[in-house]
Nucleic acid binder design. Structure first.
Lengths: 130, 130
DNA sequence: ATATTATTAAACCATATGGTTTAATAAATG
DNA sequence: CATTTATTAAACCATATGGTTTAATAATAT
């Protein structure tokens, strides 16, 4: 685990940005290509000003880059910061899965011990039979 | 893309829960095993009540399960909801990476076209020379 | 029975969030 | 130049967040 205190502000803002369905939908659309603020806002039942604020949240999280061309602002996704979030999730979910695996391994080991015991008794029974 | 509207409330609460460093640190510790609320709260410079609220946020996001034994509450991680978050991140970061790859492929293709053109003119020049 | 311990409830506070509406700014267009 | 278009700024509002402190609750321990 690299840290948990220094890379943290980025994670804060990235996870926070992702915690809103409007913003996730915006990112989803941006994955297909560059969009103007107006286009980005269009699908949502909210004022342009509100959408504009969501864009800024994404921008501050580093998930979106803005290119101003005249009076229109073009937005493109910048998914690099997602990697920190992914890394965090992967690390801890692996940790968790590891724990589950350990548990499962224990159960399997128990089961196998039982199986061996069963086979042994079968064999014994068979030997007695033969 | 499974949806973007129905699985969304879970994503909301999971990402929101993860957007706070205290809660991430709590999860990190829980990855190592079950802890009481008091133990979970100990490392943080905040009241027990505040920590207790963080625990509830994690609980509501489904990331933490509480087992009450007498007066003490034991918490264990329940990382299943992380998978939805992981899935979202993986899907879109792959999308993004795909786009980058496409862009890169275009640039490489252009470069190769240039190279071919260069080789051609070299060859022509060579032929003229010979 | 009384005290101690583990945790939540309640009331409160400052600040953040997600919206709105009404300007303001600045660029393209008739 | 006047107007329309694209976007943000500002002021405002309700509710949420992350804290605090001081009870309340309930289970142990003395």
């Amino acid at each position: 685990m690299t840290d948990t205190q220094n890379e943290t502000p980025a994670l804060d803002s990235v996870f926070h940005a992702l915690a809103d369905p409007t913003r996730r939908a915006m990112l989803a659309r941006l994955a297909e290509g560059e969009l103007r603020i107006g286009e980005l806002a269009a699908p949502f039942a909210m004022s342009l000003a509100a959408a504009s604020k969501h864009v800024r949240v994404l921008e501050h999280a580093g998930l979106l880059e803005r290119r101003v061309a005249g009076r229109t602002h073009f937005c493109r996704i910048q998914a690099q910061p997602l990697q920190a979030a992914q890394a965090w999730l992967n690390y801890y979910s692996r940790f968790w899965r590891g724990r589950l695996d350990t548990l499962e391994a224990l159960l399997v080991a128990e089961q196998e011990a039982d199986d061996r015991a069963d086979r042994q008794t079968e064999k014994d029974a068979g030997a007695a039979h033969e």
